[in-house]
Design a protein around this nucleic acid. Sequence first.
DNA 1: TAGTGGTCTAGACCACGGC
DNA 2: CCGTGGTCTAGACCACTAG
Lengths: 230, 230
Amino acid sequence: MSMGWQDVRDEALRRIRSRAWEPGALIPNEADLAQELGCARATVNRALRALAEEGWLDRRRKAGTRVTLAPQRRAQLAIPLIRQQIEARGQSFGHRILIRTAEPMPPHVLALFDLPAPGPAAMRVQTLYLADDRAFALEDRWVNLDAVPSFAGADLDALCPNEWLVRHAPFAHGTLDYSAVPASAEEAAQLGCAPGAPLMILERRTYGPAAPVTYMRLAHAPGHRLRLEI
Amino acid sequence: MSMGWQDVRDEALRRIRSRAWEPGALIPNEADLAQELGCARATVNRALRALAEEGWLDRRRKAGTRVTLAPQRRAQLAIPLIRQQIEARGQSFGHRILIRTAEPMPPHVLALFDLPAPGPAAMRVQTLYLADDRAFALEDRWVNLDAVPSFAGADLDALCPNEWLVRHAPFAHGTLDYSAVPASAEEAAQLGCAPGAPLMILERRTYGPAAPVTYMRLAHAPGHRLRLEI
DNA sequence: TAGTGGTCTAGACCACGGC
DNA sequence: CCGTGGTCTAGACCACTAG
């Protein structure tokens, strides 16, 4: 026999796809499978755990392992730096800082973070990202200076805000929100499109271990596509 | 001591976040860590493997384990059925089949799948999805009848195309593409918005084990947001 | 070629949770 | 209660690859 855990996983997946193990049905327990396949129980465990993480199986102590009824597949989106997005397309990356001011977070940003007015000391930075010297996206960002004091002195011409924060402000979690909105007059001017043109907007909230770190609103130039793989 | 693998993972993550292990630096090998933490090497292996899968560590045989320089976090998007999206918001789900015809895939769809004309026998279905009896999204779909012959006789009034395919057409992989485009006259009429209004478009290609299964273009009503968690 | 992570094993004990 | 998956261990061999 000699089955490695990937072989066991493949065999189990084959039985799931071929419906030899029907959706919702109980499959043999680890010990039995190990004997049948001629390997240790730990090997079967590793394989079935992998399939459970991928959503193919539901495992519960005592209840056993069942084939998931509605396999809820997850799409994964790698969150690349804007530089990487642009360079991956073979274009040259650039950025221009348009605005950089000490400025408290506006009420709608405070509300998103569930913070009371007037909020923490903050810095606002507006950045235009360029691909081959053409506008790629317009970013408006507020950074919580209480959480990242050193941002006040960051050299943002050398390192764009996106990269600076990734390097200096380790974060715990956050949310991404994509939506489609018409371009404002300012966005249209900066991105070189008609006012009202549909833009993909990415809003991002980032939290550190304890406190909010930054809110960002990124307006992509028209034609931007977000791709996810399943 | 008595460290479980989750304790080892937490301790390692603490050292990464506190920069006790600096970005890019080599960390101790598994055997040394096991001795230091008072557990078996397999336990350390399990913990470090988990951190590597989450993107915190880069591991290579012989070269050792390093802290990832630019931790590339991945956002995960659970792909729920449209019904679940709507019901999760406390609204009632409904759908109406607008078009259902035997109709070959148009050239741009064949091109996406890299198929030569005239392509496989196919069925086109246009569906309007409703949330609380208001338009939620307009779907245009082609299904490859060679890959899923039984789709020709599916009762799509009982089960919307989305759910029918999830239940009957096990798939291997696919892509999701989000973009922002102006509403066409037809979309505006069906979705109850102004022509030219910005719409979030989801295009989805789904492949079975061997052949393409379906291409779908879903136009969301204005205001739709796509949220991902990190 | 030597050092590192990757994996397998046999056995053990534990935690959960149907019954 | 007691069957199931979850985990740990000590040891072993292997696969890859940097030097």
